[in-house]
Design a protein around this nucleic acid. Structure first.
Length: 189
DNA sequence: CGGGTTTGACCTGCGC
DNA sequence: GCGCAGGTCAAACCCG
């Protein structure tokens, strides 16, 4: 892996995501992401634009090699969370983060335990998107996993929310991933 | 038997 | 208002 040319997420021809791409790169990945994961709450907020038709800011960095993720920051990506929503209650929005990985497997072993709660076909993509929730009690972190139809080797993993607990199993793999991201992030800024 | 997955139905937001 | 697409629910199912 000599260099990792940053690439933009390919704009989808879908009509719903024709907005401009304004985005931020994460300039550093706190190592405490492995332990207390406060990083998910510390992103800058910005306007949002489309990523694969989602309401998210996205700039994608590309890393070659299996398991090597691209960090993708959703600058102000605030998605809607309607947990226990009541009529008239304000929607809570939380930042989302996506990793683009070139991998044969969809699921990155990030050390947390996830339970799949849904799968949906996505427009303009022949691969379905899978929805996962952290199984830890009281932790409602979610993630979405989707493979690019344009490049079957690329998997987008979108994290949503902050883990409120420690990692539940060995995170060697994810630590490796994070290390790569830290290296890589120095390119972005 | 407990925990995770599958999958169709349902809900909601958004664009036309 | 309607239809579409994304997101979630939950019952049935599967597996260790």
């Amino acid at each position: 892996m000599e260099h990792y040319p940053p690439i933009l997420f390919p704009p989808q021809p879908s009509s719903s995501s024709s907005s401009s791409y304004s985005s931020h790169l994460i300039t550093h990945l706190p190592s405490n992401m492995l332990s207390n994961n406060q990083v998910f709450g510390s992103l800058p907020r910005n306007n949002s634009s489309g990523l694969l038709g989602l309401r998210e800011d996205a700039k994608v960095l590309s890393l070659e090699g299996h398991g090597a993720p691209q960090m993708e920051s959703f600058g102000g990506a605030e998605n809607e969370v309607n947990a226990g929503r009541k009529k008239g209650e304000k929607k809570v929005r939380r930042p989302r983060f996506a990793f683009q990985t070139r991998s044969q497997v969809d699921i990155l072993d990030d050390g947390y335990r996830w339970r799949k709660y849904g799968q949906k076909a996505v427009k303009n993509n022949k691969f379905p998107r899978s929805y996962y929730r952290c199984t830890h009690q009281g932790c409602n972190v979610k993630k979405q996993v989707q493979r690019l139809s344009k490049d079957e080797g690329i998997v987008i993993t979108t994290y949503e929310g902050m883990h409120s607990h420690a990692i539940q199993k060995s995170n060697d793999n994810f630590e490796h991933i994070l290390n790569q991201m830290q290296i890589y992030s120095s390119f972005g800024v």
